[in-house]
Design a protein around this nucleic acid. Structure first.
Lengths: 144, 144
DNA sequence: ACCCTCCTGCAACCAGGTCGCAACTAGTCG
DNA sequence: CGACTAGTTGCGACCTGGTTGCAGGAGGGT
């Protein structure tokens, strides 16, 4: 709810356009994602959705997220060992995750250009670096 | 078993050196990894170990692998959504995984130099690209 | 041979997610 | 407007991959 309502309607229109139906659960999920302005775990989304729609089942959340993912309206990323996080599909960026403190650093896609070209040339492999984060140690946790 | 016996003994010596004990389970695990000459899931290792030591428990496999990991004798990598795979710690390479067919492409570490430098310079982030694979589409599964 | 510590077997547990099925409902068509 | 029908949902059981607490057992230093 709130000011992002039009944004949500746009996204729902996209859902319709691509053959999906507009349902309470999907509206609530997209609304939560627009509100959050970033990535959220399925669990966090479930909690948020439950606040206004307590009778939406856990499995429905997962299924709806999968559906929205299949419709290219949202995307999920694995940040490490824990649960996946979801964000709107048009929010294009890559993730670095600190293995020590869990901090997430968002970086532009084009940092990966060189690497992508190298593996394409050398191995015929098309890199899709968005689906899994890259792990490492953030500035704050670096020993020196 | 077989010709890799000395290799296994070297690795076990490493375990001792670093304060770990030499046990049936650890010997069997290292032996299986040396035999396999590559990466194996905990499950596959368990199966292999069970063949000669049927009374070694599942949880012991996991614990031993964690221990060997902590002793820097083996390492684990997450190739995607499924189980992690283990390999000997001195077998240094990175992994590209095809999201379509699941093929694993091993690439040398130095392909990542450029990217590592870029995120280090730009974000103070030390990339450790070994722990998670990079996803994409392999040559065989590419549309054209 | 002794003893202390590390390791193991066991079984219960956990997180994160999936599935089969019957009931429901969004959107289409008359 | 009402009926139809395929896409969705609620429910609960289930699954994979892995962890944990505890009591008993084995490694290896002395």
């Amino acid at each position: 709810m709130g000011a992002g309502g039009e944004r949500v309607d746009e996204l729902l229109a996209l859902v319709r356009e691509r053959g999906g139906r507009i349902t309470t659960c999907r509206r609530a999920l997209l609304s939560a994602l627009v509100d959050a302005q970033g990535h959220m775990t399925a669990d966090a989304l479930a909690e948020r959705v439950h606040a206004s729609h307590p009778d939406i089942h856990r499995s429905t959340i997962y299924r709806s997220l999968n559906d929205l993912d299949a419709l290219d309206v949202v995307e999920h990323v694995h940040l490490g060992h824990g649960p996946a996080v979801y964000h709107l599909a048009d929010d294009l960026h890559r993730h670095l995750v600190c293995e020590t403190c869990g901090a997430v650093v968002e970086v532009p896609d084009d940092l990966f250009r060189g690497l992508a070209r190298a593996v394409a040339d050398g191995y015929g492999f098309r890199l899709q670096p968005g689906h899994f984060a890259l792990l490492g140690t953030c500035a704050a946790c670096s020993p020196d």
